[in-house]
């Protein structure tokens, strides 16, 4: 590739990642608002269950391990990308995807169980806060998985292009960010919820 084009692409990478970091900061503020609301509304159980009564630490720990592992496999995928190894890249992306789907499955089953027992978001402010905070994170994971599918489809169609490289880099940032938010959720919602 010609030098001007290379510089152009580098600049595009720089602009895009700067913009994406800023977007992640805004997402951070969004989650912060939801966390703040959750914490304030945590005691408002309106005669319904408290956090200690409904959260299962083993399940939350399982979710955490799954998600952390998926962050690791995502990292492996990006390493493969660096080495232009398409096969490894797709494999590790696939593993990440499977782990992400497992995470969502467990989370949705937790939600379904709660709703089935009559403890939906309609029962109290505490439950509203819980479902919305954890649900928003889950929705972000869902969008991430959708993104992942599209990326894999593009990889199959076009192989590793500069554009795909850039977009996968952003995906990695997104996925690690969601992992970080999950660590906070695990701590504030589940760990502290069971302890209180």
């Amino acid at each position: 590739m010609s030098k001007p084009r290379l510089l152009e692409q580098k600049f595009l990478d720089y602009k895009t990642s700067t913009g994406f970091w800023l977007y992640l900061m805004t997402d951070c503020v969004l989650f912060a608002s939801l966390f703040a609301t959750y914490i304030v509304l945590h005691p408002a159980t309106a005669g319904g269950p408290t956090s200690g009564e409904i959260f299962s630490l083993p399940m939350a720990l399982t979710e955490t391990i799954i998600l952390l592992t998926s962050s690791f496999t995502c990292g492996l995928a990006l390493l493969a990308l660096r080495q232009n190894n398409l096969k490894q890249l797709v494999i590790w992306l696939a593993v990440t995807y499977v782990l992400g789907v497992s995470f969502l499955t467990i989370e949705l089953s937790e939600f379904a169980a709660l709703v089935g027992d009559g403890h939906s978001w309609q029962q109290s402010a505490f439950l509203s806060g819980f479902f919305t905070l954890v649900g928003t994170h889950g929705f972000h994971i869902f969008i991430g998985l959708l993104w992942l599918l599209v990326m894999v489809a593009v990889l199959f169609k076009k192989g590793i292009t500069l554009k795909v490289k850039r977009q996968l880099g952003l995906f990695g940032l997104f996925w690690h960010f969601l992992d970080l938010v999950w660590v906070f959720i695990f701590t504030v919602v589940y760990l502290m919820g069971v302890a209180s």
Binding site: V40, L41, P43, A44, T45, A46, G47
Partner: peptide
């Protein structure tokens, strides 16, 4: 207020 004595507004900010 809910049936428990915890009043959310009490424990709020």
């Amino acid at each position: 207020m809910d049936d428990q004595t915890t009043n959310v507004q009490q424990s709020g900010m």
